[in-house]
Design a protein around this nucleic acid. Sequence first.
DNA 1: TCCCCGGTGATTGCATGCAAGTTAGGGGTC
DNA 2: GACCCCTAACTTGCATGCAATCACCGGGGA
Lengths: 228, 228
Amino acid sequence: MTRPPTSAERALGTLRELIMGGELAPGARLGEVELADRLGVSRTPVREALSRLAAEGLVEVVANRGARVATWTVAELEGVFDLRSVLEPQLTAHAVPNAGPGDVDELDALARRMHEVGAPGPAQDLDALVPLNRAFHDRLVTLAAHPTLAAALAAAIHPPIVRRNFLTYDEESLRRSLAHHTEIVAAVRAGDPAWARAVMTSHIANARAVMVRAARLQATAHPQEETA
Amino acid sequence: MTRPPTSAERALGTLRELIMGGELAPGARLGEVELADRLGVSRTPVREALSRLAAEGLVEVVANRGARVATWTVAELEGVFDLRSVLEPQLTAHAVPNAGPGDVDELDALARRMHEVGAPGPAQDLDALVPLNRAFHDRLVTLAAHPTLAAALAAAIHPPIVRRNFLTYDEESLRRSLAHHTEIVAAVRAGDPAWARAVMTSHIANARAVMVRAARLQATAHPQEETA
DNA sequence: TCCCCGGTGATTGCATGCAAGTTAGGGGTC
DNA sequence: GACCCCTAACTTGCATGCAATCACCGGGGA
Protein backbone atom coordinates (compact mmCIF):
# COMPACT_ATOMS: atom_id res chain seq x y z
CA MET A 1 0.00 0.00 0.00
CA THR A 2 1.62 3.19 -1.16
CA ARG A 3 1.66 6.01 1.29
CA PRO A 4 -0.26 9.07 0.08
CA PRO A 5 2.29 11.85 -0.27
CA THR A 6 2.05 14.78 2.09
CA SER A 7 1.38 18.27 0.86
CA ALA A 8 4.96 19.24 1.53
CA GLU A 9 6.23 16.37 -0.60
CA ARG A 10 3.91 17.28 -3.44
CA ALA A 11 5.01 20.90 -3.21
CA LEU A 12 8.62 19.78 -3.25
CA GLY A 13 8.15 17.60 -6.31
CA THR A 14 6.08 20.14 -8.17
CA LEU A 15 8.53 22.94 -7.53
CA ARG A 16 11.43 20.75 -8.56
CA GLU A 17 9.75 19.93 -11.83
CA LEU A 18 8.81 23.54 -12.45
CA ILE A 19 12.40 24.61 -11.93
CA MET A 20 14.10 21.73 -13.71
CA GLY A 21 11.59 22.00 -16.53
CA GLY A 22 12.45 25.63 -16.99
CA GLU A 23 8.99 27.02 -16.31
CA LEU A 24 10.54 28.92 -13.46
CA ALA A 25 13.61 30.59 -14.89
CA PRO A 26 16.76 31.15 -12.85
CA GLY A 27 16.39 34.31 -10.80
CA ALA A 28 12.61 34.14 -10.77
CA ARG A 29 11.10 35.23 -7.50
CA LEU A 30 9.35 32.58 -5.42
CA GLY A 31 6.81 34.27 -3.17
CA GLU A 32 5.41 31.99 -0.52
CA VAL A 33 1.81 33.07 -0.85
CA GLU A 34 1.95 32.99 -4.61
CA LEU A 35 3.26 29.42 -4.61
CA ALA A 36 0.83 28.41 -1.88
CA ASP A 37 -2.09 29.64 -3.96
CA ARG A 38 -0.70 28.01 -7.07
CA LEU A 39 -0.34 24.64 -5.34
CA GLY A 40 -3.54 24.92 -3.33
CA VAL A 41 -1.90 24.54 0.07
CA SER A 42 -0.91 26.88 2.86
CA ARG A 43 2.45 28.57 3.25
CA THR A 44 3.79 26.01 5.71
CA PRO A 45 4.42 23.13 3.30
CA VAL A 46 5.67 25.63 0.73
CA ARG A 47 8.21 26.93 3.21
CA GLU A 48 9.33 23.41 3.94
CA ALA A 49 9.72 22.63 0.25
CA LEU A 50 11.66 25.84 -0.37
CA SER A 51 13.92 25.08 2.54
CA ARG A 52 14.76 21.66 1.21
CA LEU A 53 15.24 22.94 -2.31
CA ALA A 54 17.64 25.49 -0.87
CA ALA A 55 19.56 22.68 0.79
CA GLU A 56 19.71 20.96 -2.59
CA GLY A 57 20.97 24.13 -4.22
CA LEU A 58 18.04 24.62 -6.55
CA VAL A 59 16.85 27.83 -4.94
CA GLU A 60 18.57 30.58 -3.02
CA VAL A 61 17.03 32.16 0.05
CA VAL A 62 18.16 35.51 1.40
CA ALA A 63 16.94 35.89 4.95
CA ASN A 64 13.79 38.01 5.16
CA ARG A 65 13.95 38.62 1.44
CA GLY A 66 12.45 35.47 0.10
CA ALA A 67 13.54 32.78 -2.28
CA ARG A 68 14.59 32.90 -5.90
CA VAL A 69 15.42 30.18 -8.37
CA ALA A 70 19.15 29.64 -8.12
CA THR A 71 21.34 31.20 -10.76
CA TRP A 72 24.68 29.82 -11.82
CA THR A 73 27.72 31.35 -13.34
CA VAL A 74 29.92 29.78 -15.96
CA ALA A 75 32.46 29.02 -13.22
CA GLU A 76 29.85 27.11 -11.24
CA LEU A 77 28.84 25.25 -14.36
CA GLU A 78 32.43 24.20 -14.85
CA GLY A 79 32.57 23.15 -11.22
CA VAL A 80 29.60 20.86 -11.69
CA PHE A 81 31.29 19.22 -14.63
CA ASP A 82 34.48 18.82 -12.61
CA LEU A 83 32.44 16.92 -10.10
CA ARG A 84 30.69 14.81 -12.71
CA SER A 85 34.04 14.04 -14.29
CA VAL A 86 35.21 12.34 -11.12
CA LEU A 87 31.96 10.73 -10.04
CA GLU A 88 30.45 9.38 -13.22
CA PRO A 89 33.52 7.52 -14.51
CA GLN A 90 33.89 5.94 -11.09
CA LEU A 91 30.25 4.89 -11.06
CA THR A 92 30.63 3.48 -14.55
CA ALA A 93 33.61 1.42 -13.49
CA HIS A 94 31.58 0.08 -10.57
CA ALA A 95 28.76 -0.83 -12.92
CA VAL A 96 30.83 -3.03 -15.21
CA PRO A 97 31.18 -6.14 -13.03
CA ASN A 98 27.50 -5.96 -12.07
CA ALA A 99 26.15 -5.94 -15.61
CA GLY A 100 24.65 -9.19 -16.82
CA PRO A 101 23.98 -10.04 -20.47
CA GLY A 102 20.47 -8.65 -20.25
CA ASP A 103 21.75 -5.35 -18.90
CA VAL A 104 24.25 -5.10 -21.73
CA ASP A 105 21.49 -5.74 -24.25
CA GLU A 106 19.34 -3.01 -22.76
CA LEU A 107 22.20 -0.52 -22.80
CA ASP A 108 22.93 -1.55 -26.36
CA ALA A 109 19.31 -0.99 -27.36
CA LEU A 110 19.35 2.47 -25.81
CA ALA A 111 22.57 3.39 -27.58
CA ARG A 112 21.20 2.19 -30.91
CA ARG A 113 17.96 4.12 -30.54
CA MET A 114 19.95 7.21 -29.73
CA HIS A 115 21.86 6.74 -32.96
CA GLU A 116 18.59 6.41 -34.85
CA VAL A 117 16.95 9.55 -33.52
CA GLY A 118 20.19 11.50 -33.28
CA ALA A 119 21.60 10.92 -36.74
CA PRO A 120 21.40 14.01 -38.96
CA GLY A 121 18.65 13.80 -41.50
CA PRO A 122 14.88 14.00 -41.72
CA ALA A 123 14.38 11.47 -38.91
CA GLN A 124 16.45 13.47 -36.45
CA ASP A 125 14.56 14.19 -33.24
CA LEU A 126 16.78 15.86 -30.69
CA ASP A 127 14.01 16.11 -28.12
CA ALA A 128 13.75 12.33 -28.06
CA LEU A 129 17.42 12.12 -27.15
CA VAL A 130 16.97 13.64 -23.73
CA PRO A 131 14.95 10.81 -22.14
CA LEU A 132 17.04 8.17 -23.90
CA ASN A 133 20.25 9.72 -22.67
CA ARG A 134 18.88 9.98 -19.19
CA ALA A 135 17.78 6.34 -19.27
CA PHE A 136 21.23 5.28 -20.42
CA HIS A 137 23.05 7.12 -17.67
CA ASP A 138 20.49 6.10 -15.05
CA ARG A 139 20.92 2.48 -16.04
CA LEU A 140 24.65 2.72 -15.45
CA VAL A 141 24.13 4.42 -12.11
CA THR A 142 21.68 1.74 -11.04
CA LEU A 143 24.05 -1.02 -12.09
CA ALA A 144 26.82 0.56 -10.05
CA ALA A 145 24.72 -0.17 -6.96
CA HIS A 146 26.52 2.55 -5.03
CA PRO A 147 23.98 4.75 -3.25
CA THR A 148 26.49 7.18 -1.81
CA LEU A 149 28.19 7.96 -5.09
CA ALA A 150 24.80 8.05 -6.80
CA ALA A 151 23.45 10.53 -4.28
CA ALA A 152 26.47 12.79 -4.70
CA LEU A 153 26.05 12.69 -8.45
CA ALA A 154 22.35 13.43 -8.23
CA ALA A 155 23.07 16.43 -6.02
CA ALA A 156 25.64 17.64 -8.51
CA ILE A 157 23.40 17.43 -11.55
CA HIS A 158 20.57 19.21 -9.81
CA PRO A 159 21.52 22.64 -11.01
CA PRO A 160 19.21 22.64 -13.97
CA ILE A 161 21.86 22.43 -16.56
CA VAL A 162 21.26 19.24 -18.44
CA ARG A 163 17.78 20.39 -19.21
CA ARG A 164 17.80 21.80 -22.68
CA ASN A 165 21.04 20.30 -23.70
CA PHE A 166 21.13 18.38 -26.94
CA LEU A 167 19.92 21.44 -28.78
CA THR A 168 23.24 23.04 -28.03
CA TYR A 169 25.37 20.20 -29.39
CA ASP A 170 27.09 20.93 -32.65
CA GLU A 171 27.11 18.09 -35.12
CA GLU A 172 30.61 16.84 -34.39
CA SER A 173 30.15 16.86 -30.61
CA LEU A 174 26.82 15.09 -30.93
CA ARG A 175 28.36 12.40 -33.10
CA ARG A 176 31.11 11.98 -30.53
CA SER A 177 28.59 11.75 -27.72
CA LEU A 178 26.61 9.02 -29.46
CA ALA A 179 29.80 7.12 -30.27
CA HIS A 180 30.76 7.29 -26.61
CA HIS A 181 27.56 5.54 -25.62
CA THR A 182 28.24 2.77 -28.08
CA GLU A 183 31.80 2.42 -26.87
CA ILE A 184 30.69 2.29 -23.25
CA VAL A 185 28.42 -0.60 -24.14
CA ALA A 186 31.38 -2.33 -25.75
CA ALA A 187 33.52 -1.78 -22.66
CA VAL A 188 30.80 -3.10 -20.38
CA ARG A 189 30.30 -6.11 -22.62
CA ALA A 190 34.05 -6.73 -22.52
CA GLY A 191 33.96 -6.50 -18.73
CA ASP A 192 36.70 -3.88 -18.73
CA PRO A 193 36.09 -1.24 -16.00
CA ALA A 194 39.12 0.82 -16.91
CA TRP A 195 37.97 1.10 -20.50
CA ALA A 196 34.45 2.08 -19.47
CA ARG A 197 35.82 4.63 -17.04
CA ALA A 198 38.02 6.19 -19.68
CA VAL A 199 35.22 6.51 -22.21
CA MET A 200 32.92 8.04 -19.63
CA THR A 201 35.61 10.54 -18.74
CA SER A 202 35.82 11.56 -22.37
CA HIS A 203 32.04 11.66 -22.55
CA ILE A 204 31.79 14.12 -19.69
CA ALA A 205 34.65 16.21 -21.03
CA ASN A 206 32.90 16.46 -24.37
CA ALA A 207 29.64 17.48 -22.74
CA ARG A 208 31.51 19.98 -20.59
CA ALA A 209 33.01 21.67 -23.63
CA VAL A 210 29.62 21.94 -25.29
CA MET A 211 27.82 23.28 -22.24
CA VAL A 212 30.50 25.77 -21.28
CA ARG A 213 30.60 27.15 -24.80
CA ALA A 214 26.81 27.48 -24.84
CA ALA A 215 26.78 29.16 -21.44
CA ARG A 216 29.46 31.63 -22.55
CA LEU A 217 27.46 32.51 -25.63
CA GLN A 218 24.31 32.96 -23.64
CA ALA A 219 26.13 35.02 -21.04
CA THR A 220 27.37 37.46 -23.66
CA ALA A 221 24.01 37.55 -25.44
CA HIS A 222 21.84 38.21 -22.40
CA PRO A 223 24.01 39.69 -19.67
CA GLN A 224 22.30 40.03 -16.28
CA GLU A 225 19.00 38.60 -17.41
CA GLU A 226 16.50 38.94 -14.60
CA THR A 227 13.32 37.04 -15.10
CA ALA A 228 10.75 38.40 -12.69
CA MET B 1 26.92 44.14 10.22
CA THR B 2 26.31 40.51 10.84
CA ARG B 3 22.79 39.36 10.41
CA PRO B 4 21.33 37.90 13.61
CA PRO B 5 20.62 34.26 12.86
CA THR B 6 17.01 33.16 12.72
CA SER B 7 15.61 30.64 15.13
CA ALA B 8 15.51 28.01 12.42
CA GLU B 9 19.18 28.55 11.67
CA ARG B 10 20.12 28.28 15.30
CA ALA B 11 18.04 25.13 15.64
CA LEU B 12 19.74 23.73 12.56
CA GLY B 13 23.21 24.49 13.87
CA THR B 14 22.50 23.26 17.36
CA LEU B 15 21.01 20.01 16.16
CA ARG B 16 23.90 19.46 13.80
CA GLU B 17 26.38 19.91 16.62
CA LEU B 18 24.40 17.67 18.94
CA ILE B 19 24.36 14.93 16.34
CA MET B 20 27.91 15.34 15.08
CA GLY B 21 29.15 15.67 18.63
CA GLY B 22 27.54 12.39 19.54
CA GLU B 23 25.23 13.75 22.22
CA LEU B 24 22.38 12.44 20.13
CA ALA B 25 23.31 8.90 19.24
CA PRO B 26 22.30 7.30 15.93
CA GLY B 27 18.78 6.00 16.18
CA ALA B 28 17.81 8.43 18.91
CA ARG B 29 14.29 9.70 18.60
CA LEU B 30 13.85 13.38 17.79
CA GLY B 31 10.46 14.53 19.02
CA GLU B 32 9.44 17.93 17.75
CA VAL B 33 8.04 19.21 21.03
CA GLU B 34 10.97 17.85 23.01
CA LEU B 35 13.47 19.61 20.75
CA ALA B 36 11.37 22.76 20.69
CA ASP B 37 11.39 22.92 24.48
CA ARG B 38 15.08 22.13 24.60
CA LEU B 39 15.90 24.92 22.17
CA GLY B 40 13.38 27.38 23.50
CA VAL B 41 11.53 27.85 20.24
CA SER B 42 8.30 26.58 18.76
CA ARG B 43 7.89 23.48 16.65
CA THR B 44 7.96 25.37 13.36
CA PRO B 45 11.68 26.19 13.20
CA VAL B 46 12.43 22.75 14.60
CA ARG B 47 10.48 21.15 11.78
CA GLU B 48 12.37 23.25 9.27
CA ALA B 49 15.69 22.25 10.78
CA LEU B 50 14.78 18.59 10.83
CA SER B 51 13.66 18.79 7.24
CA ARG B 52 16.96 20.24 6.14
CA LEU B 53 18.94 17.78 8.21
CA ALA B 54 17.00 15.04 6.51
CA ALA B 55 17.98 16.46 3.15
CA GLU B 56 21.58 16.40 4.33
CA GLY B 57 21.24 12.81 5.42
CA LEU B 58 21.88 13.41 9.10
CA VAL B 59 18.41 12.40 10.23
CA GLU B 60 15.79 10.07 8.83
CA VAL B 61 12.11 10.95 8.84
CA VAL B 62 9.40 8.35 8.42
CA ALA B 63 6.15 10.06 7.48
CA ASN B 64 3.88 10.53 10.46
CA ARG B 65 6.35 8.69 12.66
CA GLY B 66 8.81 11.40 13.44
CA ALA B 67 12.52 11.82 12.96
CA ARG B 68 15.44 9.81 14.26
CA VAL B 69 19.17 10.38 14.06
CA ALA B 70 20.35 8.60 10.96
CA THR B 71 22.00 5.24 11.35
CA TRP B 72 24.57 3.83 8.96
CA THR B 73 25.65 0.38 8.08
CA VAL B 74 29.19 -0.72 7.39
CA ALA B 75 28.34 -0.77 3.69
CA GLU B 76 27.26 2.88 3.83
CA LEU B 77 30.40 3.76 5.72
CA GLU B 78 32.44 2.15 2.97
CA GLY B 79 30.42 4.08 0.42
CA VAL B 80 31.28 7.35 2.10
CA PHE B 81 34.95 6.50 1.95
CA ASP B 82 34.60 5.57 -1.72
CA LEU B 83 33.28 9.05 -2.28
CA ARG B 84 35.99 10.70 -0.22
CA SER B 85 38.61 8.69 -2.09
CA VAL B 86 37.60 10.32 -5.37
CA LEU B 87 36.81 13.80 -4.11
CA GLU B 88 39.54 14.61 -1.65
CA PRO B 89 42.51 13.65 -3.84
CA GLN B 90 41.03 15.75 -6.61
CA LEU B 91 40.57 18.69 -4.28
CA THR B 92 44.13 18.28 -3.05
CA ALA B 93 45.44 18.36 -6.59
CA HIS B 94 43.47 21.54 -7.21
CA ALA B 95 44.94 23.08 -4.08
CA VAL B 96 48.57 22.64 -5.08
CA PRO B 97 48.93 25.43 -7.66
CA ASN B 98 47.02 27.83 -5.39
CA ALA B 99 49.27 27.39 -2.37
CA GLY B 100 51.67 30.22 -1.68
CA PRO B 101 54.71 29.95 0.61
CA GLY B 102 52.67 31.15 3.58
CA ASP B 103 50.09 28.46 3.01
CA VAL B 104 52.76 25.79 2.83
CA ASP B 105 54.22 27.03 6.10
CA GLU B 106 50.85 26.85 7.81
CA LEU B 107 50.23 23.35 6.55
CA ASP B 108 53.71 22.41 7.68
CA ALA B 109 53.08 23.82 11.13
CA LEU B 110 49.86 21.84 11.43
CA ALA B 111 51.56 18.64 10.33
CA ARG B 112 54.39 19.18 12.83
CA ARG B 113 52.02 19.85 15.70
CA MET B 114 50.12 16.70 14.85
CA HIS B 115 53.35 14.78 15.08
CA GLU B 116 54.01 16.34 18.48
CA VAL B 117 50.68 15.50 20.04
CA GLY B 118 50.28 12.23 18.14
CA ALA B 119 53.62 10.60 18.86
CA PRO B 120 53.36 7.72 21.34
CA GLY B 121 54.59 8.64 24.78
CA PRO B 122 53.54 10.68 27.80
CA ALA B 123 52.83 13.77 25.70
CA GLN B 124 50.40 11.96 23.43
CA ASP B 125 47.01 13.68 23.27
CA LEU B 126 44.74 12.02 20.75
CA ASP B 127 41.87 14.40 21.43
CA ALA B 128 44.02 17.30 20.29
CA LEU B 129 44.53 15.58 16.97
CA VAL B 130 40.92 15.94 15.87
CA PRO B 131 40.84 19.74 15.49
CA LEU B 132 44.34 19.79 14.02
CA ASN B 133 43.44 17.15 11.47
CA ARG B 134 40.29 19.00 10.61
CA ALA B 135 42.21 22.24 10.24
CA PHE B 136 44.70 20.57 7.93
CA HIS B 137 42.07 19.11 5.63
CA ASP B 138 39.99 22.26 5.71
CA ARG B 139 43.02 24.29 4.70
CA LEU B 140 43.53 22.11 1.66
CA VAL B 141 39.86 22.33 0.74
CA THR B 142 39.95 26.10 1.03
CA LEU B 143 43.07 26.31 -1.08
CA ALA B 144 41.43 24.22 -3.77
CA ALA B 145 38.94 27.07 -4.22
CA HIS B 146 36.41 24.73 -5.74
CA PRO B 147 33.02 25.27 -4.09
CA THR B 148 31.22 22.51 -5.95
CA LEU B 149 33.69 19.78 -5.07
CA ALA B 150 33.93 21.14 -1.55
CA ALA B 151 30.17 21.05 -1.11
CA ALA B 152 30.01 17.48 -2.35
CA LEU B 153 32.73 16.48 0.06
CA ALA B 154 31.06 18.24 2.97
CA ALA B 155 27.83 16.43 2.20
CA ALA B 156 29.71 13.15 2.11
CA ILE B 157 31.46 13.59 5.44
CA HIS B 158 28.27 14.61 7.19
CA PRO B 159 27.41 11.15 8.38
CA PRO B 160 28.99 11.55 11.78
CA ILE B 161 31.81 9.19 11.21
CA VAL B 162 34.95 11.20 11.61
CA ARG B 163 33.81 12.20 15.04
CA ARG B 164 35.53 10.00 17.53
CA ASN B 165 38.11 8.73 15.14
CA PHE B 166 41.70 8.91 16.24
CA LEU B 167 40.91 6.78 19.25
CA THR B 168 40.33 3.90 16.89
CA TYR B 169 43.66 4.20 15.08
CA ASP B 170 46.14 1.50 15.89
CA GLU B 171 49.68 2.69 16.31
CA GLU B 172 50.90 1.75 12.85
CA SER B 173 47.94 3.34 11.04
CA LEU B 174 48.28 6.49 13.10
CA ARG B 175 51.97 6.75 12.27
CA ARG B 176 51.08 6.32 8.59
CA SER B 177 48.39 8.97 8.81
CA LEU B 178 50.76 11.51 10.34
CA ALA B 179 53.42 10.69 7.77
CA HIS B 180 50.88 11.26 5.02
CA HIS B 181 50.25 14.78 6.23
CA THR B 182 53.93 15.53 6.18
CA GLU B 183 54.29 14.06 2.71
CA ILE B 184 51.34 16.08 1.42
CA VAL B 185 53.09 19.22 2.64
CA ALA B 186 56.18 18.13 0.75
CA ALA B 187 54.18 17.53 -2.41
CA VAL B 188 52.47 20.90 -2.14
CA ARG B 189 55.80 22.60 -1.53
CA ALA B 190 57.19 20.84 -4.59
CA GLY B 191 54.21 22.03 -6.61
CA ASP B 192 53.42 18.50 -7.75
CA PRO B 193 49.64 17.92 -7.94
CA ALA B 194 49.97 14.28 -8.97
CA TRP B 195 52.13 13.54 -5.97
CA ALA B 196 49.76 15.29 -3.59
CA ARG B 197 46.80 13.49 -5.12
CA ALA B 198 48.48 10.13 -4.72
CA VAL B 199 49.35 10.68 -1.08
CA MET B 200 45.86 11.86 -0.30
CA THR B 201 44.46 8.74 -1.96
CA SER B 202 46.64 6.62 0.30
CA HIS B 203 45.62 8.74 3.26
CA ILE B 204 41.91 8.11 2.68
CA ALA B 205 42.49 4.43 2.02
CA ASN B 206 44.33 4.14 5.32
CA ALA B 207 41.55 5.93 7.17
CA ARG B 208 38.99 3.76 5.42
CA ALA B 209 40.67 0.59 6.60
CA VAL B 210 40.77 1.84 10.18
CA MET B 211 37.18 3.02 10.26
CA VAL B 212 35.74 -0.04 8.59
CA ARG B 213 37.56 -2.31 10.98
CA ALA B 214 36.32 -0.30 13.95
CA ALA B 215 32.77 -0.31 12.63
CA ARG B 216 32.86 -4.07 12.11
CA LEU B 217 34.05 -4.57 15.66
CA GLN B 218 31.38 -2.30 17.02
CA ALA B 219 28.71 -3.97 14.93
CA THR B 220 29.54 -7.38 16.32
CA ALA B 221 29.87 -6.05 19.85
CA HIS B 222 26.58 -4.13 19.98
CA PRO B 223 24.28 -5.51 17.30
CA GLN B 224 21.06 -3.52 16.82
CA GLU B 225 21.83 -0.91 19.43
CA GLU B 226 18.83 1.33 19.86
CA THR B 227 19.48 4.43 21.86
CA ALA B 228 16.16 5.86 22.90
C1' DT C 1 -1.81 -19.53 25.16
C1' DC C 2 -1.77 -16.88 21.08
C1' DC C 3 -3.81 -13.76 17.86
C1' DC C 4 -6.81 -10.16 16.45
C1' DC C 5 -9.29 -5.92 17.39
C1' DG C 6 -10.97 -1.56 19.28
C1' DG C 7 -9.99 2.38 22.34
C1' DT C 8 -6.85 6.02 23.95
C1' DG C 9 -3.04 8.96 24.36
C1' DA C 10 0.49 11.11 22.00
C1' DT C 11 2.64 12.94 17.77
C1' DT C 12 2.84 14.64 13.31
C1' DG C 13 1.00 17.61 9.36
C1' DC C 14 -1.06 21.66 8.12
C1' DA C 15 -3.61 26.16 8.42
C1' DT C 16 -3.85 30.56 10.27
C1' DG C 17 -2.64 34.79 13.02
C1' DC C 18 0.61 38.14 14.56
C1' DA C 19 5.00 40.65 14.89
C1' DA C 20 9.44 42.03 12.80
C1' DG C 21 11.80 43.23 8.81
C1' DT C 22 12.10 44.93 4.00
C1' DT C 23 11.02 47.49 -0.10
C1' DA C 24 8.83 51.08 -2.66
C1' DG C 25 7.02 55.62 -3.11
C1' DG C 26 5.96 60.43 -1.82
C1' DG C 27 6.81 64.62 0.54
C1' DG C 28 10.08 67.74 2.40
C1' DT C 29 14.54 70.03 2.46
C1' DC C 30 18.87 71.73 0.66
C1' DG D 1 16.31 69.60 -9.63
C1' DA D 2 18.53 66.12 -6.65
C1' DC D 3 18.83 63.88 -2.32
C1' DC D 4 17.10 62.17 2.04
C1' DC D 5 13.84 60.63 5.24
C1' DC D 6 9.65 58.84 6.55
C1' DT D 7 5.52 56.34 6.02
C1' DA D 8 2.81 52.40 4.24
C1' DA D 9 2.02 48.06 2.09
C1' DC D 10 3.90 43.75 1.59
C1' DT D 11 6.71 39.72 2.81
C1' DT D 12 8.92 36.70 5.69
C1' DG D 13 9.59 34.34 10.35
C1' DC D 14 7.53 32.29 14.08
C1' DA D 15 3.89 30.74 17.40
C1' DT D 16 -0.21 28.43 18.15
C1' DG D 17 -4.44 25.59 17.28
C1' DC D 18 -6.83 21.82 15.21
C1' DA D 19 -7.55 17.59 12.60
C1' DA D 20 -5.57 13.17 11.00
C1' DT D 21 -2.64 9.48 11.83
C1' DC D 22 -0.04 6.30 14.48
C1' DA D 23 1.77 3.52 18.46
C1' DC D 24 0.50 1.42 22.64
C1' DC D 25 -2.45 -1.63 25.37
C1' DG D 26 -6.05 -4.17 27.29
C1' DG D 27 -9.94 -7.42 26.21
C1' DG D 28 -12.36 -10.90 23.64
C1' DG D 29 -12.34 -14.92 20.75
C1' DA D 30 -10.25 -19.08 18.62
